[in-house]
Amino acid sequence: MCEEPLLIAEGLTKFYGARLGCRDVSFTLHAGEVLAVVGESGSGKSTLLGLLSTELAPSAGHVRYSMRDGSLRDLAELSEPERRLLLRTDWGFVRQSPEAGLRMAVSAGANVGERLMAVGWRHYGNIRGAAADWLGRVEIAADRIDDSPKSFSGGMRQRLQIARNLVTAPRLVFMDEPTGGLDVSVQARLLDLIRSLVADLGLAVVIVTHDLAVARLLSHRIMVMKEGCVIEEGLTDQVLDDPQAAYTQLLVSSVLQS
């Protein structure tokens, strides 16, 4: 219980001009923890993900991260090479649209191998071996390794995006609606894959979703956002089974019972 947190967000605030993105968000995340950020469109959850992943600069507040060497660093103070190295080694980012997270013009194998080449792998056979291994782990047939992701279905593309992110054994993965836009049956398979990979690899995850079922299946903790602010947070099953805030009660009551 006393181990150091992996990531600490303090008072994160983002304004787009006069418009509020999110306000005063603070939390800590430990290794292996899955945090779901839920809320409807425009609630600020994607802004928060952008701030955490350094894609956006905060108007106020800090994000600190425990680097692989054990030092706790303010992400705003990382040099650009350090930031890029972090993004492609210790972090992953699975986007809602696989087209935004993949290189659609190169093969599946190159998509998975890219991060390895970026961190200095120069042995083709080893790169290809690692890519093949990861394709297998995300249930993509070995004979598709040289195919373009353009020939893949939506679910396959999303699985490929996951492999591309996990190949460098990151400790923290950001996910932005990873199952959005997929058929229900495809969603179920993807969720199960994410769930087992997260558990097997001990990944810390910040997942943004508007789907409470996704949050319940994957996350340990939940943060409910509305109009840029966190209005309720806690243990996932507690927030979903005993919601306190009026808005959370509305969200929970809006879910169809299965």
Binding site: V106, A110, M117, R128
Partner: peptide
């Protein structure tokens, strides 16, 4: 930051 230059060479070999 040139690691990705090898992506094209990888594609050739593949």
């Amino acid at each position: 930051d040139y690691g990705t230059m090898h992506v094209k060479l990888y594609e050739d070999i593949a």
